[in-house]
Design a protein around this nucleic acid. Structure first.
Length: 312
DNA sequence: TCTACTTACACCTTTGAATAGG
DNA sequence: ACCTATTCAAAGGTGTAAGTAG
C-alpha cells in the first residue's frame, strides 16, 4: 500500500449514515464506547447505506477507527478535559465487512452494518478486534474499494467516508451517567437495567444489589459535550477545502445547506485526502452532522497543533 | 486519596438445533 | 419429503459494583 494519497478521482459513490438519529442523540452529550480486554461491541453500531455503485462491479467495504486528535482526555466531574498529549497509538486495524467482496447491486440492496465489530484495549489482541486507547477520542471511517477480493485491492479507487456524529471517547468504564442512561434505554442487551423494568430486575436491585445506583438524568444537562469534536470539525482534519469546510461548519451550526435538499448524515463533500499516518484511503469524504454539536468548552486555541500532529 | 482498569455477576437478547404440525 | 412455526438451551452482550494497581 502506498503511503501517499492518490490523485482524487470523483466516483459519485454515496454513503449515508443509517441510524443517524441515534448517533446524534449520543453525540449531543459526548459518545463513549466501552473497550475491554476481550473486546466489546460498539453501541450504537455502525450502519450505512451505500448508493451509486456500479451494479456489476465488485467492491470490498471496510471500516477502521482513527484518532480524532492528538490528545488524551479525563473526565472531570461533569465534562471531558484534555489530560495531555495522546499516548502512542497502536497499529491501525481495519475491519472488512463479511460480505466482501460483493457486486455493487448487493451493497445497494440494503443498509450494511458492522454490529459484530469489537473494540479492545488489549494491544496483544489476536482476534482481529480494533485496538484503541482508553480516554482517547476516535471516529469510524468507512472505505469503499473496487476489488475482486480483499487481497487485490485497487487502492487508486478507494473512497472513504466519515460522519462527525459517530466520533466517541474510548473508555473502560462509563464516565458520563447520561451516556449510561442512553445506552440502557436504547440497547436491548441492557434492558435489564431500565427503570421500571421487569420484576426480576426490581428484585435484583432491591435484594442483591442494594447499592446499585442508576444514574439520574436532567434533560437540561444534555447540552454538555466534549470539545474535541468541535475541534475535529474546525481544524480541517479531513483536509477539506475552504469552501467545503465552510459548508460543513455551517451545517454543524444548524445552518441551512444551500443547493439540493440534503438529508441528515448525507455525504456531500468530495475532497482529496492527504492521509499519511493512517493511510487506508485515498479519498475521504466528510459527511456533516445535521444537528449542531455544542462543545462545553470554547477556549481551545490549539487547532493547528492537532492538524500538524496528525498529518505531518 | 484519587483515577483508571479488571473481573465476577445477574439479567437480558440472540442464535441455532430439535421438534411438531401442516 | 419438504416447509414452516414453535420451543428450548446455550452462547454471548449488557451495565454494575467491588476489588486492584499505580
Amino acid at each position: 500500500m502506498s503511503l501517499l494519497a492518490h490523485p482524487y478521482q470523483p466516483s459519485g459513490i454515496r454513503v449515508t449514515l443509517e441510524n443517524a438519529d441515534l448517533w446524534q442523540s449520543f453525540h449531543s452529550i459526548g459518545t463513549e464506547m466501552i473497550i475491554t480486554k476481550h473486546g466489546r461491541r460498539m453501541f450504537p453500531h455502525c450502519s450505512v447505506r451505500v448508493s451509486r455503485l456500479q451494479p456489476f462491479t465488485n467492491y470490498v467495504i471496510t471500516m477502521d477507527i482513527v484518532p480524532v486528535d492528538g490528545f488524551k482526555y479525563k473526565w472531570k466531574k461533569e465534562h471531558w478535559e484534555i489530560a495531555g498529549a495522546a499516548d502512542p497509538h497502536p497499529p491501525c486495524r481495519t475491519y472488512t465487512h463479511p460480505d466482501s467482496p460483493a457486486p455493487g447491486r448487493h451493497w445497494m440492496k440494503q443498509p450494511l452494518s458492522f454490529p459484530k465489530l469489537k473494540l479492545t484495549n488489549n494491544t496483544l489482541d489476536q482476534h482481529g478486534h480494533i485496538i484503541l486507547l482508553s480516554m482517547h477520542r476516535y471516529y469510524p471511517r468507512f472505505h469503499v474499494v473496487q476489488a475482486d477480493n480483499p487481497y487485490t485491492l485497487r487502492w487508486g479507487s478507494v473512497q472513504s467516508f466519515s460522519f462527525p456524529e459517530t466520533a466517541f471517547t474510548a473508555v473502560t468504564a462509563y464516565q458520563n451517567p447520561k451516556i449510561t442512561k442512553l445506552k440502557i434505554d436504547h440497547n436491548p442487551f441492557a434492558k435489564g437495567f431500565r427503570e421500571g423494568g421487569t420484576h426480576s430486575h426490581s428484585k435484583r436491585l432491591s435484594n442483591k444489589s442494594p447499592r446499585a445506583k442508576r444514574p439520574t438524568l436532567d434533560r437540561d444537562d444534555l447540552s454538555n459535550s466534549s470539545p474535541s469534536l468541535q475541534r475535529m470539525l474546525s481544524t480541517s482534519q479531513f483536509t477539506q477545502t475552504e469552501e467545503s469546510r465552510a459548508s460543513t461548519q455551517q451545517s454543524l451550526k444548524g445552518g441551512h445547506l444551500s443547493g439540493s435538499a440534503l438529508e441528515p448524515s448525507e455525504n456531500i463533500h468530495v475532497e482529496p485526502l492527504l492521509l499519511r499516518e493512517y493511510n487506508c484511503s485515498s479519498d475521504e469524504q466528510m459527511v456533516p452532522a445535521s444537528v449542531p454539536y455544542q462543545p462545553y468548552r470554547s477556549d481551545f486555541k490549539n487547532n493547528q497543533y492537532c492538524l500538524n500532529a496528525w498529518y505531518t
